[in-house]
Design a protein around this nucleic acid. Structure first.
Lengths: 199, 199
DNA sequence: CCTCCATAGCTAACTTTGTTAGCCAGACTC
DNA sequence: GAGTCTGGCTAACAAAGTTAGCTATGGAGG
């Protein structure tokens, strides 16, 4: 139930712009997210956008914040749901399923958020790490957690990019990976995170 | 020792261009791979390149072919080496190590080759699949193979993009993943591929 | 009430990028 | 020797991000 770190504050108009950018990105793809196209959607001219954002990368950074926040929220929620189910569900499988679901639900936002270097100076501090902690909570230790995250990201991005051979049974591939990692999970897993475990 | 599928044939001049493009890409990054910069390196003007390639994407496709061919060759070689070592080495670990090595050796070519949709019409037929078969040969079955590949790609791309927290012990994370997948490998693995196993 | 100034729009214009059109010199063929 | 193919060239365009500088509106302070 951990709460989202506070996102970078935006003026109301800037928030509208980010929302429009998100719709544009998701509906028409990353290449279509152009300054002029975004301005068009808002009924203004391209240079006016620079009254609200220093450059295009700043808009993208705001979108990445949204992506990270939503991903983190979905993963934390999935973990909590698994924990409180009766009987408690396997947390690794729960996190993996949630991760895939959110990636496929917003493919272009996912790609934007997870491809290429992150502009960390422009992101709310702590956000990136908070979004990733569910992997740690599910895996019980940091090395397995990173391996699990890498597997999940690889699966999602390769699926989004159409890299798997046609007709692949990806449900089964996910299950295979989940099984491999679950078998290595340390006995008992991890309770609610202690402060230093998060750091 | 399976041989590389025949790559798309290039005129000598076109091959020179691709080589120059590769150096430019690797030395200065993807954004620096511009038509004019490439022409500069060759001592000609930008429009002259269009006498050799229909568009920039065609040059990139040729680079992707190289990337796939080299990756495939390295993985097949690593697998053969593991097989013929005394005693024979664990094939999953061998393929993973080779995959990481080649990704880190040519980060920009790796990113170009593995990010975004593949222009399959422009690639030599069979090449993509041939580059991936070592994962199948090491895993012994297709689902584990895809999971293994996804893990490997996720690890490499996240490392290249600087996504892991500073100071992460990635050697250990790789080992953790290798161990998880090795434990699930079917008894005995797979001999040299039979024809239908490749298809 | 009037002045001032911050806000948020505008037009014009510049740079960089991929790309096309069309010209020309040299080399090889018949 | 005439013609054609090859591989360069210049000029130019459209789309992209961005900057400079103008202007209208609307609230704050005197």
């Amino acid at each position: 139930m951990s709460t989202v770190p506070e996102l970078s504050s935006l003026t109301p108009r800037a928030a509208e712009i980010v929302s429009a950018a998100r719709v544009l990105l998701e509906e028409e793809g990353r290449d279509a997210l152009t300054v002029r196209a975004l301005a068009d959607r808002l009924g203004i001219r391209a240079p006016s956008l620079y009254k609200h954002f220093s450059d295009k990368a700043a808009v993208e950074a705001a979108l990445m914040e949204r992506g990270l926040a939503e991903t983190g929220a979905a993963l934390h929620a999935a973990l909590d749901a698994a924990r409180h189910a009766t009987p408690p569900e396997e947390p690794i499988g729960a996190v993996l399923r949630a991760y895939r679901r959110i990636g496929l639900a917003h493919p272009n936002l996912y790609r934007l958020t997870t491809s290429g270097p992150l502009p960390r100076q422009r992101l709310a501090p702590g956000l990136e790490e908070w979004a990733g902690t569910p992997f740690f909570l599910a895996a019980g230790e940091p090395y397995l957690a990173q391996a699990l995250w890498s597997f999940a990201h690889g699966m999602v991005i390769l699926e989004l990019d159409g890299r798997y051979p046609e007709g692949s049974d990806l449900d089964r591939t996910w299950a295979e990976g989940a099984h491999a990692f679950t078998a290595r999970r340390p006995r008992g897993g991890v309770e609610r995170p202690s402060a230093e475990a998060q750091a």
